[in-house]
């Protein structure tokens, strides 16, 4: 069985189990899981970028673009279907990524991080001053329908949970396949040695720009999902603390496993919720200590607990062993 087919079956089974479990979960936990899934989708994009060796400190930019486009499509243009809203949000963020990506792909490390942060804060400034989109208060978004079915007060929590779970699972599968593809391996090579990759005859900048666009599309989808579930959007979607949370989540997850980002996202939501309840004035301190512990004891993130590095397929590994034996015989002669 191919690795991708194996992942498809595994993720599908996990999704079914999650959807069934959702029927028995309390409302507050359903909402928490919905937020974790929506934000985790944004974190997936960060993982794609981290594999290429860069971290965006401004993922709030595409998160807000996705959210605002979905919100505006629902309020101004009467788009009522949640799936269409997510697609619109994702597409708009991908377009923004396609504009900014080629420029940002020239930069690395702190310069890349700061430029992305600056862009998100520019958007924040614009949104705060734009009365047409509600200024600093933002605006409310009506509850959408889902594939022709209306969502009401009683079933909305489960409907949004199911929507975000399905979309998150599909996107996680796609990101997993991407990470295993030749482009995915190229990203790891770029992180290790850009000069060598350029000398092999392929464009490092193009690869980095593509990763940025993919991350933007995922960020936009996460923003749209969040807006649909919350029913409200405001400029804080683009604020630097929001971007910081995504970075926190990505560091917590590591880039070894795409699904790890959802565990990280859930952990973040849980730590935030409970710290906020029991230590209302110092919950950021608890969050910081939690991150510190993860960095100390799991420097490659929680995903490293179960993700194994990719290896040669069994048949190829066997051929390598036979070739090594021939090499050893030649050397002995």
């Amino acid at each position: 069985m191919s690795r991708n087919l194996h992942s498809t079956l595994l993720y599908s089974a996990a999704l079914v189990a999650l959807l069934l479990a959702g029927l028995m979960l309390p409302q507050w936990l359903l909402f928490l899981l919905t937020m974790a899934a929506s934000h985790g989708v944004v974190g997936l994009g960060l993982i794609v970028m981290m594999r290429g060796g860069v971290v965006s400190f401004g993922q709030g930019l595409v998160f807000a673009i996705g959210g605002y486009v979905a919100g505006l499509a629902a309020t101004r243009y009467g788009v009522t279907d949640a799936v269409v809203l997510v697609l619109l949000g994702s597409a708009a963020a991908a377009i923004a990524g396609a504009i900014a990506g080629p420029l940002l792909a020239r930069y690395r490390s702190i310069f890349f991080a700061m430029l992305t942060l600056a862009l998100s804060m520019v958007l924040y400034g614009i949104l705060v001053k734009s009365s047409a989109v509600g200024g600093s208060d933002g605006f409310n978004v009506p509850r959408p329908s889902l594939l022709g079915f209306s969502i009401n007060e009683t079933n909305s929590d489960y409907a949004f949970f199911a929507l975000s779970s399905v979309i998150a699972t599909v996107l996680t599968l796609l990101v997993t396949i991407y990470c295993r593809s030749s482009r995915g391996l190229l990203s790891l090579a770029i992180r290790d040695n850009e000069l060598r990759v350029e000398y092999l005859g392929t464009s490092v900048r193009a690869a980095m720009a593509i990763n940025f666009i993919i991350a933007a599309a995922l960020g936009g989808a996460g923003g749209a999902l969040t807006v649909i579930s919350l029913g409200h959007i405001d400029p804080n979607f683009s604020y630097w603390t929001r971007s910081g949370e995504f970075v926190f989540m990505a560091i917590l997850a590591g880039h070894a496993s795409a699904p790890a980002v959802f565990l990280a996202s859930l952990l973040l939501e849980l730590v935030r919720s409970f710290s906020n309840k029991y230590f209302p004035d110092t919950w950021q301190l608890a969050l910081g200590l939690f991150l510190l512990l993860i960095i100390l004891f799991l420097p490659k993130g929680v995903g490293s607990l179960w993700a194994k590095p990719e290896r040669l397929p069994r048949q190829a590994a066997e051929k390598a062993k036979q070739a090594a034996a021939r090499n050893a015989t030649e050397a002995a002669e």
Binding site: I177, S181, S182, L186
Partner: peptide, 19 residues
């Protein structure tokens, strides 16, 4: 594999496995 992939598949695939 990275070198061969770049050489043989100039436009790298998003889904075709690296291995």
């Amino acid at each position: 594999l990275v070198a061969l992939t770049v050489a043989r598949r100039g436009a790298l695939s998003f889904w075709r496995g690296a291995y």
